[in-house]
Nucleic acid binder design. Sequence first.
RNA 1: GCUGCUGUAGCUCAGGGGUAGAGCACUUCCUUGGUAAGGAAGAGGUCAUGGGUUCAAAUCCCAUCAGCAGCUCCA
Length: 646
Amino acid sequence: MNETIKLTLPDGSVREVPAGTTGLELAAGIGKGLAKAAVAIKVDGHVRSLQLPIDTDATVEIVTRDTPEGLHVIRHSAAHVLADAVKRLRPHAKLWKGPAIDDPRFGFYYDIDVGDEPLSNEDLPKLEELMRQIVASDVPFVYEERSREDAKRLMAEHGEVYKLATIAKIPDGEVISFYHSGDFVDLCEGPHVPSTGRIGKGIAVLSLAGAHFEGDAGQKMLTRVYGHAFADEKSMAEHRHKLEEAQKRDHRRLGIDLDLFSTMGEFGAGLVLWHPKGGFVRHKMEEFWRQEHLKGGYDIVYTPHVARSDLWRTSGHLDFYADSMFKGMDVDGADYLLKPMNCPFHVQIYKSTRRSYRDLPFRWAELGTVYRYEEAGALHGLMRVRGFTQDDAHLFVRPDQLDAEIDRVLAFILHILRSFGFEQFEMNLSTKPEKSVGDPKDWATAEAALRKALEKSGLPFEIDEGGGAFYGPKIDVKIRDSLGRSWQCSTLQLDFNLPERFDLTFVDHDGERRRPFMLHRALLGSLERFFGILIEHFGGAFPVWLAPVQAVLLSVGERHGAYAEKVAAELRERGFRVDADCGADKIGAKIRHHLWQQKVPMIAVCGDQEVEHGTLAVRDRRDGELGALTPDQLAERLAELERTRA
RNA sequence: GCUGCUGUAGCUCAGGGGUAGAGCACUUCCUUGGUAAGGAAGAGGUCAUGGGUUCAAAUCCCAUCAGCAGCUCCA
């Protein structure tokens, strides 16, 4: 067999090599550096293991360790090594699965049944050390195919009962393959790096959790070990640092430290108390929100917190979401329910009178507080709660207005999110699912309108085919925060269900009654959650326009207190949030407390110099010392920062 | 909801079958000090709640509630 094959490289050049040449050999032939950085090879677009032979002509590309695909392979291989490590620590452990994942915190996990010897956090460093040893020993990953029977026998010998279940699920005719690394063997499609050493030193075992077998809440709980792997140690160190930073910015921690909010805890899980400082931030959020909505052509409405169950029956909420609605209360013999959504009320406003085509579109916005019974285990700080305020709006539009309205809403969403300091967005269009209500023609019209608006925005978007709700297609907008984490906040959603259920109509120019399109939209999502995101985004250091306290004047000594108080009072009179700290602490302690611990944007020192000249020695949290400013100059600076929301 | 872990002072946590400790914060006093912690004294807790075991429970057991991590879920 001396056949040669032609391999086309990304630069267009063609290499003739003997059939059966492996990716490793090819890489070595191209260059030493490339061979060293190689972790896999793309053959006709498919990522494969380097150690496998290539038998036919193909377009190939060496996958290096610093590419997304390369990292994926490294992480998958690291998962195997992690499983190997766990089995060294717990020889009777039974493996389930261990994929590389796309998660901001972790690169891979392995789900393992460790039996009655649970792993604890103290085991994580041990596992990491074992992984390092396995990597250092640089054993090859060896690929092997087996028949179904052979495969079952091998896994049965190893006591891998969960793997047997996996084998049973592999369709007939598909290859059943294994990767061996030393004594460790795992059922796996690959690809894997050629040997454990290629995983490199940028690895970590990070966290321990439970995960149900097959992701099914009714099934046995296995132990999930999370880890991460990067191209090099430096990237791993950076990632660890980022995790620490995220921990420091945890809104629950900052909520306590900065006295922003608390939750009712034993008096009501998932219910939020906004303390004065958090309440002030919310006040500014709402104030801005209202002002922009009024400018943006919305009308503001208010609706109740409860309504008779009939409303929720007609709307369909009771049928679909009864489990996540709070139990009813009896009012004069009628069953009343807390509202889980605002839309049925807005629909009632629509229905309160006959509507003419001349009056549409309606844009009705409400900061509407809703209650949803979220599962106890789902609750999380401000991010997932049982009572929250949606920045909700419903639009009722004529079919001919749909395009323009969607455009307008999308632009509005981006405007508001940018105002809060977010610059990066990820957008998603979700289209008609299998099960849906409404006229397919309307779906098509709406999806086309949504898509056009996305294209017009000039921002990249992805399409989630079939990912829409049963009642209409939607656009979701995710924001990226200062740590690069993404949060889904805004949503723009068509609804073909409610207009039908409540029989909404308008009288068209020809005298006919027609059905309006109805749109739901939220920009911030929930004020509670968005507040949580803001806290983490800014690390508690709110910009001047949102900060509950914008500046604190600090007296150096006892004799400067009166001056500090007087200037603070004057600034407050002019509408600024300014405090004076005339306590007995030394100036260093005051600065540490206000500027660094309480994260106030600005402090101003008042001593002999300042009293004499009628100035303030201002220091900005971000920009450092600003020198001597008059109270007027400080006011100007605050006003400018407030105006620009910088 | 599921699995595991946790619940001790306002916060962070130590302790642990014989009726409670530290640091920070707080109060008072001394100090009035010029840009990331001045000093001293004091006050503060039915050890989440309810049961059980025990001569004795904050400590061991069970249940409940709440919190944490993840899973599942999120109109």
